[in-house]
Design a protein around this nucleic acid. Structure first.
Length: 470
RNA sequence: UCCCCGGUAGCUCAAUGGUAGAGCAUGCGGCUGUUAACCGCAGGGUUGUAGGUUCGAGUCCUACCCGGGGAGCCA
């Protein structure tokens, strides 16, 4: 028999007086000696729970209903009726309540109807989706994911499944996780004592990807507008509220495009995705505004209505130098042209100077990756970072170097082996075009939407140094 | 990896170096078409681990483990 989602009942899709069956988990039970118990049933189909009225005439009332506690799984059937109580418009008057799954030890069931700390809930990550917050997050995460795909699909982008395992160690963006089937207790050796990776699964060293960018460029230079959206892995020993060893990243790449078009795309995409959060996750966003961050809805509304502030790196340095903050000596790191922006500088720009996300463009070439396009001044590259209040860098992007001679020079300057990049160089030998792209950290975007303070709480199963439970 | 803060009941937290407590949750009783219901009673603890100082350590010291905030690195 088909169960009706709780969402359909609460939204009036099941007619009053019609019979329905709902499945779900008990959030609370309240008993009335007037002759019934009230069960709050949640099935995750929406934020709200359905009140099921279980009258004491039910044959299993004493045996089952009176023993229900938070977390029990039930199937309830009955009529949809207008509620006599105040908290809800509709409820279900049960003619049957079947217990599908008991909580075997209610005394120690980890999820109680009260506020739990996020730190505690991380330790019970297998049960935290049963809370209001993590249910809302799961729905929001899904909605934003779908909005990302819809945004690109509507604009003629193709989703490219770039590899998770990469056999080249030339991706450059930090420490990588090794993928190997070698027997670690008995490693094969070459005659000179090195580990013989020709004996490994792929016949050479392999790693988990740190970015799909280089690979997606190959499809960009054939299909024009492409993107990746998948998991990414960084083996850095980073312990902050903004870093995960496994996270999800969105990386569009557009051909016949420059940095300005890249920034336009970033702006359009974020606005589209945030509109989806506001329009499609109203109840969940309302909950975040009530319980997590009062500003979160207003922040998104403001974002979708205003345009990005764009600042040249060189101007940003001047702004920082001339700020009262600098004059009062409040920056720990002195500001000078050529330096990478420290967290305190990024925070000042986005939180104090602009008050919303800001794009900083055209950084000195020395502090950016080899593949970013050298500007005509010979000193800067066409790179951009989108900085968001409270988070810092949410997007990192660039126009790519499409000129083979310049690329080769940059590879040499960076001390890299050109041979490792032959396939990447081929893209510049055969029909090269200006192209650009960026990477958006999905979890950081969710933090911006919800006001939650830690990326570990917006991904279902966080992986961080020393932690890969569940 | 570095700096700072923390770890006490299932959960959230109290306790001047001197008998370990409260709220919620759970169990029992009462009351009520109830709304994180309410009222009463009860059970529930190797105070993160291992040492040390002291007549006496949850409290002070050392090491380690775990968690948080910040930094670096980045998305």
């Amino acid at each position: 028999m088909h169960a009706t989602p709780v969402a359909d009942v609460l939204r009036g899709k099941a007619a009053v007086d019609s019979s329905v069956t709902v499945h779900g988990w008990v959030r609370t039970r309240r008993d009335s000696k007037a002759g019934c118990s009230f069960l709050q049933i949640n099935d995750g189909s929406c934020f709200g729970s359905l009140q099921v009225v279980a009258p004491k005439e039910l044959p299993n009332y004493e045996q089952d209903v009176m023993r229900l506690t938070a977390g029990c799984a039930v199937e309830a059937s009955g009529k949809v009726v207008a509620s006599q109580g105040k908290g809800q418009a509709l409820e279900v008057l049960a003619d049957g309540v079947k217990v599908v799954g008991w909580v075997d030890d209610p005394d120690t069931y980890p999820i109680q109807p009260k506020q739990h700390s996020f730190e505690y809930l991380r330790e019970v990550a297998h049960l935290r989706p049963r809370t209001n917050t993590f249910g809302a997050l799961a729905r929001l995460r899904h909605t934003l994911s779908m909005a990302v795909h819809r945004f690109f699909h509507e604009r003629g982008f193709y989703w490219i499944h770039t590899p998770i395992v990469t056999a080249s160690d030339c991706e450059g963006a930090g420490a990588m996780f090794r993928v190997s089937t070698l027997d670690m207790a008995n490693l094969p050796r070459t005659p000179d004592g090195q580990i013989d990776f020709t004996k490994d699964f792929f016949g050479k060293q392999a790693f988990l990807t740190v970015s799909g960018q280089l690979a997606v460029e190959t499809y960009c230079l054939a299909l024009s507008k492409v993107y990746t959206f998948g998991p990414t892995f960084r083996a850095e020993n980073s312990n902050t509220s903004r870093h995960l060893a496994e996270f999800w990243m969105i990386e569009p790449e557009i051909a016949f495009a420059d940095l300005s078009a890249d920034a336009d795309l970033a702006e359009d995409m974020l606005k589209y995705v945030f509109r989806a959060a506001l329009n499609e996750c109203g109840e969940d966003m309302k909950f975040f505004a009530e319980r997590i961050d009062k500003e979160c809805i207003a922040r998104l509304e403001k974002f979708v209505e205003s345009s990005f502030e764009r600042i040249d790196y060189t101007d940003a340095i001047e702004i920082l130098k001339n700020s009262n903050h600098a004059k009062k000596g409040k920056f720990e790191f002195p500001v000078s042209w050529g330096m990478d922006l420290q967290s305190e500088h990024e925070r000042y720009l986005t939180e104090q100077h602009v008050g919303r996300p800001v794009v900083v463009m055209n950084y000195p070439k020395e502090i950016k990756a080899f593949y970013m396009r050298l500007n005509d001044d010979g000193k800067t590259v066409a790179a951009m970072d989108v900085l968001a209040p409270g988070i810092g860098e949410i997007i990192g992007g660039a126009q790519r170097e499409e000129r083979l001679d310049v690329l080769d020079r940059r590879i040499a300057e960076s001390g890299l082996d050109p041979k490792a990049y032959n396939w990447y160089r081929d893209l510049r030998r055969y029909g090269t075009v200006p192209h650009a792209g960026f990477g958006l950290g999905f979890e950081r975007t969710l933090i911006y939407c919800t006001g939650l303070g830690n990326v570990r709480d917006v991904i279902p199963f966080p992986r961080t140094p020393g932690n890969a439970e569940f």
